[in-house]
């Protein structure tokens, strides 16, 4: 078995064959092939992961309540969501347009929640200032910014024409 080093200077086992295997410091072999990941058992590394569906749902609701209470941006997103839905009901959108608008709105909620989750994971990993922590947090919030910009774009694309029509209809 030939020993080479990866970029972090850690020894990497090379079987010499076509099998792609890395060895953890604990001596555990990591199969790097396509089927390698699905053979890993998360329960072996993190005993707190829960398999109960009802329980998972409870945690999800708990997480939603957390972001609603603690994340200022989610509170603004909630208000915008209500405004947009009211506006959509007022001008009477068709099904596909509703789907588009709700999808774009959903993306904002999803990225905000994932942003908060990643931030928590990073804060958990270290409470020191670290370049990787900055990258992780900044890039996650960039995803949230992106989804917000795209939501505004889509809201303009699908809401402005019918709103203008409704307004001019009122004036006529």
């Amino acid at each position: 078995m030939a020993e080479t080093e990866n970029r972090a200077g850690q020894p990497v086992a090379d079987d010499g064959g076509d099998e792609d295997v890395l060895v953890t410091p604990q001596g555990e072999k990591l199969d790097m092939s396509i089927t390698g990941t699905m053979n890993l058992d998360a329960g072996a590394s993190s005993p707190k992961t829960n398999p109960d569906r009802l329980q998972s749902m409870k945690f999800a609701v708990a997480g939603l309540l957390y972001v609603l209470k603690r994340e200022q941006s989610i509170q603004i997103v909630s208000i915008i969501s209500i405004v947009v839905v009211v506006l959509g009901l007022w001008v009477g959108l068709n099904t596909v347009t509703w789907a588009l608008l709700l999808l774009a709105l959903g993306a904002v909620w999803v990225t905000e929640c994932l942003n908060t989750a990643i931030e928590a994971a990073i804060n958990l990993a270290t409470d020191e200032v670290h370049p990787l922590a900055k990258i992780g947090k900044d890039v996650a919030s960039a995803a949230a910014l992106l989804s917000t910009i795209v939501f505004v774009l889509i809201a303009l694309l699908v809401l402005v024409p019918p709103v203008l029509r409704a307004l001019s209809g009122d004036a006529a």
Binding site: I118, L132, A133, I135, G136, K137, V139, A140, A142
Partner: peptide, 12 residues
């Protein structure tokens, strides 16, 4: 973006 963020978190 979220992939890169998760990757940074894991590396950290």
């Amino acid at each position: 973006f979220l992939n890169a963020a998760v990757e940074a978190a894991v590396n950290l």
